[in-house]
């Protein structure tokens, strides 16, 4: 039931561990927005990181969130850092 902050370098372990947590929320941050998260539920991606990289159309099922929303999510959930 945690929020997993995931950047590209630590994604292999991070995404795999998040998959074992039934209530996981996965937040793709920085270069993490390049990740393929097909098959993972509750995926979010940081708007500014997505827009600068031009990857909005490649994100599949990820919800795009701004920093304000990410702050709310951080407050509401335990944070697991893979960033």
């Amino acid at each position: 039931m945690a929020l997993y902050l995931i950047d590209l370098p630590f994604a292999q372990v991070g995404l795999d561990v998040a998959k074992k947590d039934s209530g996981a929320k996965v937040v793709l941050i920085q270069d993490g927005v390049y990740l393929d998260t097909t098959g993972i539920e509750n995926v979010y991606a940081v708007k500014e990181d997505v827009e600068r990289r031009g990857v909005a159309a490649r994100l599949g099922n990820a919800n795009i969130i701004d920093y304000d929303t990410l702050v709310d999510m951080i407050v509401e959930n335990k944070v697991v850092n893979f960033a």
């Binding site: 945690a2 372990v13 795999d16 561990v17 074992k20 947590d21 697991v80």
Partner: peptide, 9 residues
């Protein structure tokens, strides 16, 4: 990795 997930919890 299951044990790691448990440690995280």
């Amino acid at each position: 990795r299951d044990d790691l997930a448990k440690l995280i919890t």
